[in-house]
Computed example of a mutant assay.
Amino acid sequence: MIRLYVFAEGQTEQTFADTLIKPHLAQHEVFIHYPRLIAHARKNGKVHRGGGRNYAPMKNDILRSLKEDSNADVFFTTMIDLYAIAPDFPGLIESESLRQNPIERVEFLEQRFAEDISDYRFIPYIQLHEYEAYLFADPTCFEYLDARRTKEIEALQAIANQYETPEFINDGQQTAPSKRIIAQFPDYGKSKSAFGPQLAELIGLEVIRSRCPHFNAWLSRLESLKNYCNNSLETV
């Protein structure tokens, strides 16, 4: 049995991991503990969670968890956004030269993240560019919010059609995926932690995977953890 800890940037990712990814990975004998919000600060001995804007508390949170559970059959992963990532994130300055190739850039940052944590059980995942990109895999899901708003849904579909993958929708302050959604559906911004996972569930993991290759690569790696452990034991 493989156990997996997920460090989520916010409540939207936390709920998405719990309601969609957790039951899916259980079919592959990978069992997620209740996803936890990643730390953003530690004050007076108390850890404050949610948000990924400060790197040091995130790193310390992960290292502490790795130390607390050092078994070979337990793994750790993240769900944090590339959008507005911590300015002191390892490799961020160097990654600027890769900005025109978002997947190559995010893979470079994940590699630097893994090197900084330095534990084979840690599998970093950085979302391109944020969670809401998944919802552009099928914008008709927004009929759930208001089926009468066909023009707004068509506007989101037109945005999705401009990109090879929703993961390429850019990360400007007004053009990030969430900002584009809120421009058409303001209510989403007020309840994104509830609506985000519900809309993703309507779309379905397989559709999201088919449209978001970086997300698919991460999920595929998590699915293979049992085989990875079995192969490692065979070579000992």
Rank of each mutant, 00 (worst) to 15 (best):
79 M>L: 15
140 T>R: 12
118 S>W: 09
137 A>K: 01
94 E>D: 12
144 Y>L: 15
102 P>D: 06
82 L>S: 02
122 F>R: 00
144 Y>Q: 15
63 L>M: 11
135 L>T: 04
71 N>M: 14
130 E>P: 07
122 F>M: 10
110 E>N: 03
119 D>H: 05
80 I>R: 00
141 C>G: 08
77 T>F: 07
140 T>K: 12
115 E>V: 13
119 D>Q: 07
55 Y>K: 01
121 R>F: 00
121 R>D: 06
88 D>I: 04
95 S>L: 01
110 E>H: 01
60 N>F: 11
95 S>M: 03
86 A>W: 07
144 Y>N: 15
107 E>S: 14
74 V>K: 00
125 Y>Q: 12
116 D>L: 12
124 P>Q: 05
117 I>W: 02
98 L>S: 00
145 L>Y: 04
111 Q>H: 11
72 A>N: 12
81 D>T: 06
113 F>C: 03
126 I>R: 03
72 A>H: 09
108 F>K: 02
71 N>R: 15
111 Q>T: 12
134 Y>M: 10
73 D>T: 08
84 A>G: 11
60 N>Q: 14
90 P>L: 02
106 V>D: 05
125 Y>H: 15
128 L>F: 00
111 Q>Y: 09
56 A>E: 14
107 E>G: 10
56 A>H: 13
100 Q>A: 15
81 D>F: 03
94 E>K: 10
120 Y>F: 14
108 F>Q: 00
116 D>G: 13
135 L>F: 00
69 D>S: 09
89 F>W: 08
90 P>Q: 00
108 F>Y: 06
111 Q>W: 06
112 R>K: 15
94 E>S: 11
106 V>S: 05
65 S>H: 09
67 K>Q: 15
145 L>H: 03
143 E>C: 12
96 E>F: 10
73 D>S: 10
113 F>M: 05
70 S>W: 01
133 A>M: 02
65 S>F: 06
91 G>M: 03
